[in-house]
Design a binder for these strands. Structure first.
Lengths: 209, 209
DNA sequence: CGCATAGTTGACTACGCTCAACCCTGGTGG
DNA sequence: CCACCAGGGTTGAGCGTAGTCAACTATGCG
C-alpha cells in the first residue's frame, strides 16, 4: 500500500504532510468543519458520517487502508460529512494548498490520486445498487457475494466471508437494522445459500441468482 | 462549462478526443463492456444503470452537463455499470491511454479531472444519506431541499423546485415507486410544507425540520 | 379521433421497523 | 473461581408503511 507513500513524495510536499493517530470513536473531522486537508488512511477503519434530522447518525460507508477522506476539501469550503474512527487508525494529512501545488509539479501524484478517487466511487455506486433490492435476504446475499474474500478458484462454487466488524455496523451500511440482518442470515441459512460457523460465513451456489 | 474543454486541450490529446451524439435511450456503454474511454457530458442527461438480478434495472443516478462517466476505465478492465441517454446528449470521449499520457504532460488537466471526480462523489454520498430516511415524505422533502433551484435569498423562507424529468425517474433515483412519490408529495402538500402548481413546486418553512 | 404514456388514487398485502425479552460471551472485581 | 455486569447477537409479537396490482384521468402525439 504505497498510494501517496511518504517516501515517494517530493520534498516540498513531504514536509507538509503529517501523520495522525486516532483512537476509537475519535473524530478526524466533523460535518461543517473547515475543509483544509485531504486524508488518506494508512491503517484502521473510519466511518463516514452525515448528520441527519432527528439526531440519528447516517452511516454512509466505512473506509479502510488506502481510502481517501475529505476530498471535498479540494473544491468546497467545508466538509459535508464527518469521519470518525471505528478502530485505532493512522491517517496521512495532506494540507489542501500544498497538495494542489505538488500535483502540478509531480504528475504521477495526480494519476495516483485520480485512481484513488475513481476507486472511491465504485463502492458508493455499489451500495446504492444494493439498496435498490428491497427483500432483505436478497440484499444481504448480494452484499456477501460482493465482499467475499479470496475467491481462490473462480470456478469454485463456494466462497468464504469473514466479518471484521460488528453486525450492527454492517446492518447500518446496507440499510437494515441488526434484527433484520440477523433474520435475513437465518433465512439464507435455512434456504441452504449459506452456512455459518462462528464468525465465518460460507456461501454456496455462487452462480445461482 | 469548460471542464476539459476542447480548446484548452494540448494538441496531442485533442486529436484523440471525439465528440459523440446520443439519441434518447441510446447506450453510451453497457455493463461489462471493455473500458477503453472516459466520458464527459457536454449536454443532455445520462442515466447510470447497473444490472440487477431479476432483469430490473437499477438506476443509481443521473448525470448532466459536466459530469464524468466511465471513470472505472482508469483502473478496471471493464465497466461495472452502463450509461444510457435519457435526453439527446453530447459527450466527449477521452481514450484511456491518451488521457493518462496527457495528464502527465499537463498538470492543470489533472487538477480539473480530480475536481470533477471529487464532485461526483458528493451526490452519491448524498443519495445514500437520503435512503437512510425511511419515511417517504421526509425523504422526499429532504430531496426537494437539496435540489432547490436558485435559493435567491438565503433568508427566504420559500424556494422553488422544477422537475426537468419524469416523476418515475425521480422516484427511482430516491428509491421509491412513482405511486409512493405521488402520495408523499400529496402529504407534504396537505401538511403545508409545499404547494404544487403544474410542474413547479414551492417549498415553505425551509428551516423547519 | 384513438393510442400510448404519465400521473393519480384506491385497496390489499407484505415485510422491515420497533420494542421487548432472552442468550451468550468477555471483562471486571470481589 | 465465581458473581456480576455490559454489549452484541438472536428471537418473538405487533404495527406501520411502502410495494403491488388495478382502475381511472389527463396529456401529448400520430
Amino acid at each position: 500500500m504505497n498510494f501517496l507513500s511518504i517516501d515517494s513524495l517530493p520534498d516540498d510536499l513531504r514536509h507538509q504532510v503529517i501523520r495522525r493517530k486516532l483512537a476509537v470513536d475519535q473524530w478526524l473531522f466533523r460535518p461543517r468543519d473547515l475543509a483544509r486537508s485531504l486524508f488518506i488512511i494508512e491503517s484502521g477503519r473510519l466511518q463516514l458520517v452525515r448528520p441527519t434530522l432527528g439526531s440519528k447518525r447516517s452511516v454512509s460507508q466505512s473506509a479502510g487502508p488506502g481510502g481517501v477522506l475529505g476530498e471535498a476539501a479540494l473544491f468546497a469550503e467545508r466538509y459535508g460529512g464527518g469521519a470518525i474512527a471505528k478502530a485505532p487508525s493512522v491517517v496521512w494529512v495532506y494540507p489542501k494548498e500544498a497538495l494542489i501545488k505538488a500535483l502540478h509539479a509531480h504528475a504521477d501524484l495526480s494519476e495516483t490520486l485520480i485512481g484513488m478517487l475513481a476507486r472511491k466511487i465504485q463502492p458508493l455506486a455499489g451500495n446504492l445498487e444494493l439498496r435498490q433490492i428491497k427483500a432483505s435476504h436478497q440484499r444481504v446475499l448480494k452484499y456477501l457475494r460482493r465482499i467475499e474474500t479470496a475467491p481462490e478458484d473462480e470456478r469454485q462454487e463456494t466462497a468464504l466471508v469473514q466479518f471484521d466488524r460488528p453486525f450492527k455496523e454492517i446492518a447500518a451500511e446496507i440499510g437494515f437494522t441488526p434484527e433484520t440482518l440477523s433474520r435475513a442470515l437465518l433465512k439464507l441459512e435455512r434456504d441452504g445459500r449459506i452456512t455459518r460457523t462462528n464468525d465465518e460465513i460460507i456461501l454456496h451456489n455462487r452462480s445461482v441468482a
